[in-house]
Structures are given as C-alpha cells and as structure tokens.
Nucleic acid binder design. Structure first.
Lengths: 244, 244
DNA sequence: GACTAAAATATGTCTAGACATATTATCCAG
DNA sequence: CTGGATAATATGTCTAGACATATTTTAGTC
C-alpha cells in the first residue's frame, strides 16, 4: 500500500474535474459505481469524495449525487509569515529595534476598541529592517489582562509578534489590508517621502471573546507584496494532498 | 441523532484547546480513551480527531498520540468577492463601463508573462463605480487560446470577471496585493491626485498549466480594505463546522 | 391539473472488527 | 555505555455490513 486507495481515488477524480473533462454541474459517479470500479468498500470511496467536497471541488446532495462545483474565486489563502523569517527568506539581513514602550490606561476607542479590552494595555512601537533599510513599522497594543507576563518581557530583545506566539494562545484573528499615504511621522520612520504609498496590515487577535493584541504594520509600498495562492483542489496531480 | 457524534466530539475537543485548558503541546486523549469515554467505535473518534488535524488544531503522530498544535498565524482566508456584489453589499449603486478593448498579438513579458500564454490575447480596461464615483480600474488580459469565446463576448455589457466565471473553468489562482502611488493616467481614471496611495490587487488564473487570464484592479486607498479572517479551529463552539 | 402520500435511493453516520505502518521504549549484546 | 534488534502501541487504512436522513420520483387522490 504505497499510496492509500482513498487518496488515489481523490486524485483521479480531481484530475477529471480540473482537466475540464467533468465540467461544473457534471454528476460524478455514484459511490456504488466507484465502489464497483475500484473494487473497494463504500466507506473508502465515500472518504475520497468527501475530501473533494471539503476542498470545494464537488457539492454532495443526498439522493441526487455529487456534482462538480461551479468554480469561484471566493477565498484565497493569505500567508502572513513572521517578519524575520520573511526578510531572511529573501536573503537579507534582519534588524529589529524597539522605538517606544509605555503602559497605557484602558481605553476602547478607535481600531483598538475592537479588542474590547477592559484593563490597562502595553503599547509598543518598533521597527523591522531588511539590509539596514526600514522594512516595516509595527504599532502594537497588548492587553495586559490577557497576557500579564508581557509587562516584564524584554521587547527590546524580542519582537512582540515572536514573543506573543511563544507565550499566548489565541483563537481568532482578523486582518485588514489597506493602502495609505505616509503621514510625516511615519514617513520619517520608514525613510520615505510624506505621502508615499504604503501598505498597511492590521491584525486583531482574540482568545475566546477576549482581545489579546492589536497590531498595525506599515510597509513602504514597494517593499512588500502580500501573496495569496488559491487552488480549488486540495489534491495535486500526483495524488499528494496539499495543505489548505 | 440531532447532531452527529463525531461533530460533537470535535467540538468538545476544540473547546478544550481553544479555552487553553489543553495548551499547545498537550497530548489529547488516545483514540481508545475517547472510544471508552464516548462509548462509540474507534472510527468515529478517529474521524473527529482527524478533522481537528485537518483544521490545524492538533498534530497526530503514530505511536505517540495527538498533540495540541502550536498556534501560528501562518495563513488567513482572504475573501475576494465579486466587485458588483461587494459594492451592492455596501448599499451603494454599482456602475460598470468598458474603457478599452483590443486584440493583442502574443507576448510574454512582464506580469502577464506568468500566464505563459502562446497565442493572441484580448486586452480590456474597464472601470467599476460605486455611487457614481470610481471604485476600481480593472486591466485584464484574456488568453484567447484558453477562452476562444471571449472574442465575441460583449464586455461592454458584462464585466469580464463575471463573464469568465460563468464561461471558463479554472484550477489555480494567485493574488498579489501591493500599495502604489497613482501615475497620472491612473489618477485620472480614479479621479484622485497623482501620487495618491492606491491598493493594487493582481490575480493570475490558470487551468492545469495553461494561463487563462491576468487581472489587475487598482483601488483608491481609502475606498477599499481587504479583510481576511482566520480561526485556527474549523469548529464553532456550537459544534457547527465553519468553512475554511 | 394540482396536491399529497408513499416508495426509491444516494449520501450521512456508525459499528466491530482486521491488518498495515510508523515510532517509541525496551532489552540485549558488544 | 552504546548500538542495534525486538516488542509494544497509536494512528492509518480498510472491510462489510447496518440504519438514518434528505430528496426525488412515482403513484394516487381530490
């Protein structure tokens, strides 16, 4: 059993769909037909077809059968790597510096209000560099009620993202991506002209309903491209299951 | 059987993980223990735990057991809706106009070269409006070898994205998001000042290895925010399975 | 014809096993 | 003490059924 049968079945069905041989709307063979074709139990073909359904390649309807789904670009996988890893993956030298750190009384207005934090917060501003040049300015607010140990962490040595990842569990996150012209302060920090087009990535992170941290990274427009890849099939043509 | 048992098990395990009661690295109960606890067959608990693994909540290792995964913000779901739906969802009036249409000989340089198209292509430039104001300028190239019927389609009446979705199957897509300052031509089309920060979404779409279309949408910076939501668990607290 | 009840049927869920496979722990020999 | 063979064990895959559930088709009734 070099290759599990259910993966082989998934891959063969996925190939028919992706090649266009089975167009959207086409009813793929019933489970009992696949059972006969592959000479296996229904649970096996069911697992194969269910995987295609999970990948969005087919829609299943009781009594009616399973149908090739209409293609739709509705969701893409946006990979947001750790800044340091991102910079080093480009073969550039990574640099990090803490610009500002202060304790802040509770407040709930603005972007940060989405965290619904009640207690005091730690506010950090730091800068990441690639080959010495400013790569991104990060503004971060950490809810000390959710992460008390952050108050004594050494954020001059460790970037807040890396520290939080290692110390605090989270359950939900939301990202927002926007373009904006750099204001004078930001322009100074990023070493660009005021008004220069920048990409801003904002992220809120929660655990349960409790806000943990809000973060805003601003990149000079030409320094960073967010890349999102999407494949409707989770199955490569070689039968390997790709991660979604 | 109001709620399938395997979903109930998944939801209960997910709740323990998300609450922090089972921290990253914690070994969740063995399948035979869950089998005893829930009084069901191993296939049922296996399906439940496998779903958690697929959702990235746990890592499974033979002989060792299943362990709560380290949380990581590595991938987010970027939802990119149809422009018309997006505008209308905001309660604004949608407008569309075709600015330019021409047949182009094959060429393979630049962004478009990623399509690896051999034959002639159709090049379109169009503009989408929200409440009368420019919302985005779309530049699109369609590979006529992959979609011959595009040559006779009426893109003055139907936006190319909607037309392609209905007429051409695709298998892979890639998005790129960047910020840039508007050049004079773009600034005129978007009715903003030259240099104004804009958000640019570029998308390439393939079927198999064959490029179908390349698209570039540029939004005035303040008009559009891309939103990506991420939850490590595919299971809501109510046991419902959320889509990934 | 329109509406309703019943039969048919494909998928959804689940069981109680079996054997395969990867990995860890153990024990033994050198 | 170290390296390697061996045993133990948790997950991975699969079978051959069973019953549940949703939906469509069919048959029957008003």
């Amino acid at each position: 059993m070099r290759q599990p049968l259910h993966l082989r079945i998934s891959a063969e069905l996925a190939a028919k769909i992706r090649s266009g041989e089975w167009p959207p709307g086409y009813r793929i063979p019933f489970e009992h037909e696949l059972t006969a074709r592959y000479g296996c139990a229904r649970a096996t073909v069911s697992k194969a077809v269910e995987a295609l359904a999970a990948a969005g390649l087919v829609d299943r309807r009781r009594r009616a059968g399973s149908f090739v789904a209409q293609p739709h670009v509705e969701a893409a996988i946006l990979e947001i790597a750790d800044i340091q890893a991102e910079v080093e993956a480009r073969g550039q030298a990574y640099g990090y510096e803490l610009l500002s750190r202060r304790l802040r009384p509770p407040r709930a207005e603005g972007d940060e209000g989405r965290l619904k934090a009640q207690g005091p917060a730690l506010q950090l501003i730091c800068r990441h560099r690639a080959n010495g040049r400013p790569f991104t300015v990060e503004e971060r607010v950490i809810n000390l009620a959710a992460a008390p140990s952050a108050e004594t962490a050494d954020f001059a040595a460790t970037a807040p993202g890396a520290w939080l990842l290692a110390h605090v569990a989270w359950s939900e996150a939301e990202h927002r991506i926007a373009a904006l012209g750099a204001d004078p302060v930001l322009a100074g920090l990023l070493a660009v002209a005021p008004g220069h087009a920048c990409l801003r990535l904002t992220r809120w992170t929660w655990r349960g309903g409790e806000g943990i941290t809000a973060m805003r990274q601003t990149f000079p427009g030409e320094a960073y491209n967010l890349v999102a890849r999407f494949t409707p099939a989770a199955f490569g043509s070689d039968g390997t299951k790709t991660t979604i």
